[in-house]
Design a protein around this nucleic acid. Sequence first.
RNA 1: GUGGGUGUAGCUCAGUCGGUAGAGCACCUGGUUGUGGUCCAGGGGGCCGCGGGUUCAAGUCCCGUCACUCACCCCA
Length: 428
Amino acid sequence: MGKYLPTEPYRGTRDFLPEEISVRQQVFHRLYEVIEVFGYQRYDGPILEPTDIYEAKSSREIVEQQLYTLTDRGGRRLALRPEMTPSVARMIAGNLGRLTFPVRWYSHPNCFRYERPQRGRLREHWQINVDLFGSPSSAVEIEFIELIHAMMAALGATPDMYVLRMSDRVLLNAIFTEILRIPADQTRPVAGLLDRWEKYPEDKLRADAAEIGLTDVQFTRLGEVVQAGEAIVAELSDEARAGSKLVEVMNTPAHDLIKVDPLIVRGFDYYTSTVFEVFDASPDNRRSLFGGGRYDNLVGLYSSQPVAGFGFGMGDVTLMDFLTTHGLLPEPANKVDAVVIPTAEALFEPARTAAAELRAAGVRTTTPLESAKLGKEIGRADKAGARVVVIIGEQDYAEGMATVRDLLTGDQERVPLDEVTNAVKKTL
RNA sequence: GUGGGUGUAGCUCAGUCGGUAGAGCACCUGGUUGUGGUCCAGGGGGCCGCGGGUUCAAGUCCCGUCACUCACCCCA
């Protein structure tokens, strides 16, 4: 061990310095605005939840290997939330009586997963969650398709930068049982194989398929399914198609906004129908940007009353990678507009008075805390991002005047003290 | 969990054959008694990730370990 404590944040977590916060705030506020324009309201919840709520319906991988768990003093098993969906389902179920459906909610929690950090994946990430509860209609799917494109547009993304790929667990199950003739209780490893399909060469896929018990014929058919893409839907039974929200969507204009793709699976067990993922079109970011789907049974864990749900989570790590790759990150904003600089100790009080007046007018204003040379203070003001400095000098002040200097142009003018605020506002 | 790459100043990095550390940028001071950016001069900053080994001598070689990072596994 060294002599000093380490200054790095805990592995897989990040410190956000003001400049980064500024960039992030701009990005997220654009998203909040779009989400709210669609009529969604923000909620929040605890970072700790009972472990049970993840064991029931998340995925084995998350619960067994990626959950941050702890036991409280009363022996209760708790976890740092790895995702928000079980929490929001719990909140919906607990407030059924006072909610008017459909409920449109969003949140922006930090979520934790114990895993090895790599590109696009850390141990703590901030995930925007948008959910709609209380409707089985495929109008929900269409609303989310529109919302997603609106959010991407708000970030400055053009449609060529990303792809919205959509599938449906109902159709997927039909593919497994009707085309591949796999018993319904053995589809899970095959879904996993589909999930990996694009990442592996064919011989590796073939080997994996053999390992999970697929015959050569089944493997070949699976390849045909992937090849067929959207066209596979037409080959499924009428019952399967009738039970699919995605098929309904395909009969509307929203069809043009998505790519129907049987490769989209998603890991969570709670999805019951539509599933989707948004992918970066750039090869630099092969990972999916974000995704979600329909989960019509999740509220049923907490209540006898069934409530249909649809939602998605958009993590900040992949999102920032996307924005960086496409040059869409905004510049950090300035922290301050004006600095009022007294040139002598005795002038600190009048400087504070002038600053107070500027602040009252909404101008972000600071004053020096210690007496220093004027040049020094102007330099500091410039670095802090101020556009204007107001110099309260002895000579000027004695005459009831102050100097207002524009740091961008270098122009400056002497104005009466009671005109300072107007002069500054004119420059900004 | 597996494999590769990298750990030297706040940041980016150089450091030859082993001879007890350097540059640029940033920061501070002065050149200017009330005027920033440019320029000039000076200055502060280093358990060379950590521990051990070899050696007269280790930033440099060897072993271990930790961290960062990329990929894999797996999956948001």
